[in-house]
């Protein structure tokens, strides 16, 4: 005697009815329209990255690594990207890059304002938090099916799946960063009659920037880890290489795709981390150095 003999809950039927019977017939045009901006940005980036010659692209990445991290990283970037080209995956890597850039841009556009809203009101945060928990714990395969039903197959649905998967860290870290701004600084801004916008723009956001950038870095990494899964529903690029290899039991092909993803991941991670740290440190670091050079006035003066 178990509870299931008394009552079976047909949750799969309910969900099927809800998605097939209600969501898909009524909202499919709406969801179709939603992917227009995604597709637009993606195609533009894809075309751009495909247009830029490999050597120029490598040079651009090398310069970015050098500015953001240092000489060693620049060297790694050059060798890594040349390696990708030599294993014949340059075009796929650029497709993956355009997918990731698109996903991260959408994550930032949605996630940072959402994080700001969450930081402003405890109620909003209480509502948002379980949603984020669900987004992070539900296996991505679970929402691939409804996404395909609503958006169809192809690159844009892949990006939408990636955005759902990669969005939580940027929201969480934006919220955390804004809430972590010293209370007396917020009080000071308020005591001078700042509006909420002035406070956000002049005080809270700059001081939370480091945390927000850390969130963006996490989002970037999650987006990268999603490329293989997105390929299942029609995403191209390196993920497709891995999937094809998997389907054909072509170990070599899958490995090559995997190596490409790892190299791209390391380069993007280091550059974005470097930018995050530099961005928030530069002013103070520079001025600390200046402080050593320029003699300071003594604090004591005769009255």
């Amino acid at each position: 005697m178990t509870p299931s003999e008394i009552l079976m809950i047909p949750i799969n039927d309910w969900v099927n009815d809800f998605v097939r019977g209600f969501l898909v017939p009524n909202f499919r045009p709406f969801f179709r329209a939603m992917q227009v901006p995604v597709a637009g940005l993606l195609n533009a980036l894809d075309a751009l990255f495909a247009f830029i010659p490999m050597l120029v692209m490598t040079a651009l990445f090398a310069v970015a690594s050098w500015r953001a991290v240092g000489r060693g990283m620049a060297l790694f970037t050059v060798i890594g990207l040349c390696f990708i080209d030599m294993i014949g995956l340059w075009a796929e890597t650029m497709t993956t890059l355009s997918m990731i850039v698109t996903s991260v841009l959408f994550c930032a556009v949605i996630g940072i304002p959402a994080g700001i809203l969450a930081a402003r009101s405890d109620t909003t945060w209480r509502i948002m938090r379980p949603i984020l928990d669900i987004m992070q714990t539900v296996p991505s395969f679970v929402y691939l099916v409804p996404i395909v039903m609503l958006f169809g197959v192809g690159m844009p649905p892949g990006i939408i799946a990636t955005v759902i998967f990669a969005l939580p860290p940027i929201i969480r870290m934006t919220n955390l960063g804004l809430r972590g701004v010293r209370a007396d600084l917020v009080e000071a801004a308020e005591s001078f009659g700042s509006t909420r916008w002035q406070m956000l723009w002049d005080v809270q956001f700059p001081l939370a920037l480091r945390t927000i950038m850390a969130g963006l870095n996490q989002t970037l990494m999650l987006a990268l880890s999603m490329v293989v899964i997105a390929a299942l529903i029609g995403g191209g690029g390196l993920g497709l290489v891995v999937n094809t290899g998997l389907g054909r039991l072509d170990v070599g092909g899958a490995t090559a795709g995997g190596i490409g993803i790892v190299i791209l991941a390391i380069i993007l991670d280091r550059i974005s981390q470097g930018l995050a740290e530099r961005g928030s440190d530069r002013t103070s670091l520079l001025s600390v150095l200046k402080g050593y050079v320029r003699p300071q006035r003594p604090a004591t003066r005769t009255a």
Binding site: R182, D184, A188, D202, S284
Partner: peptide, 8 residues
Amino acid sequence: QHFALFPH
């Protein structure tokens, strides 16, 4: 009390 100057 703790000055509350904007560090940035």
